[in-house]
């Protein structure tokens, strides 16, 4: 119900150019994921990644209540990254997305590139980046891990929606202006993000309570730190999540709406506009709908540039910290 927009896009949703470009990225990501997971899991890779993928798939099928009878379900990218580490997590969610398209007709085969990118790569690495970042400010304890996971999950959904909007800018199949899509996508996904945050935090919390050694994101905690658990009631937890997400969304929308000049300046300074325009008009298979119906073309490109940068930065930081922590854990592997 709640995942109406970003998830499992069908065939023909974006123009072929974007489909091909994202497919290349997704293929590289899956190949890298196989290597990374092989490094982390060794010859346990096949059974563990396979069964973990089944877990994510099952978790996605499981409806949870949102409000007054409406239900939603987990996307699981950030959850997978926190529990299994970003490489295995990304690989596992990618496998789920590919199989859903191939066998369950859920998401188009020609849309696999952007579906894998948005639902697996961006959520796992963006989520992991947010998780590492949040852990710097949160206590080194089980509650700290839970809080960071929740925050990571909420943000990962919004990042995923932003990534989709940016792809829309380059390959829209319809004359809906970028800022409308962006506003709707991010707006809706802020709400979805709240559910994702609460669920992910609770699931990670449950695993921390019984087998903290299985939480990849908590391997650096000592036994004593793992046992430290603050008593936080459900309502404060949910309300806190809502407040954090609303705050995040407000910041985002303030940037996007109230400060176009500043944005424009940043974008010009960084050369985003040139590159964005090159992409938008450079090739016939990239649609140029970004301009139609938008009052301020430069503005929309600037927003896209900024969010493109934000998503890339988040994913890049996730990749960076993943390769660092991967090296560390492989040294200490049993």
């Amino acid at each position: 119900m709640t995942t109406v927009l970003a998830m499992h896009a069908p065939d023909g949703f974006l123009e072929p150019g974007v489909a091909v470009a994202t497919a290349v990225i997704a293929l590289v990501a899956i190949a890298a994921g196989l290597r990374g997971a092989g490094r982390e899991l060794g010859d346990r890779q096949i059974p563990l990644a396979g069964i973990a993928a089944a877990f994510i798939f099952a978790a996605q099928m499981f409806n949870f209540p949102v409000a007054a009878g409406t239900t939603g379900h987990l996307l699981g990218g950030a959850l997978a990254a926190v529990l299994l580490g970003p490489w295995v997590g990304m690989l596992v969610v990618s496998v789920v997305v590919v199989v859903q398209a191939l066998l369950f007709a859920d998401g188009g085969l020609t849309a696999l590139g952007y579906n894998v990118l948005n639902m697996a790569v961006v959520t796992a690495f963006g989520g992991w980046a947010m998780f590492r970042l949040a852990r710097r400010f949160l206590p080194r304890s089980a509650s700290g891990i839970v809080g960071a996971s929740a925050l990571a999950a909420g943000v990962s959904v919004v990042l995923s929606a932003s990534a989709f909007s940016i792809e829309w800018l380059f390959g829209a199949s319809a004359p809906v202006p970028f800022d409308t899509v962006f506003g709707a996508m991010v707006g809706v996904h802020v709400l979805i993000g709240i559910g994702e945050a609460v669920l992910t935090g609770l699931v990670v919390g449950a695993v921390m309570a019984s087998r903290p050694d299985l939480v990849a994101g908590a391997t650096d905690l000592s036994a004593g730190e793992r046992a430290q658990r603050g008593r936080v009631g459900m309502k404060p937890f949910v309300i806190g999540g809502v407040l954090a997400t609303v705050a995040f969304a407000t910041v985002v929308s303030q940037f996007a709406v109230d400060n176009p000049d500043g944005l424009e300046k940043v974008a010009i300074d960084q050369g985003f506009i040139d590159t964005a325009q090159d992409h938008a008009f450079g090739s016939f298979i990239f649609a140029d709908y970004a301009t139609s119906g938008v009052g301020n073309e430069t503005l929309s490109l600037a927003i896209a540039g900024l969010f493109g940068a934000a998503v890339t930065l988040a994913v890049g930081f996730g990749l960076f910290s993943a390769s660092r922590s991967g090296r560390r854990s492989s040294g200490a592997a049993v």
């Binding site: 059974p47 973990a52 877990f55 209540p65 709240i194 609770l202 309570a209 949910v238």
Partner: peptide
């Protein structure tokens, strides 16, 4: 459950399922 703040038991069972899945993965290995 009908509201988001009542989901804790569901989430706990999902957490338990993860632990069971992981342990099964190790046994299968």
């Amino acid at each position: 459950p009908r509201w988001l703040w009542q989901v804790k038991p569901i989430a706990s069972s999902a957490g338990a399922l993860f632990v069971r899945s992981y342990e099964r993965g190790e046994r299968v290995h």
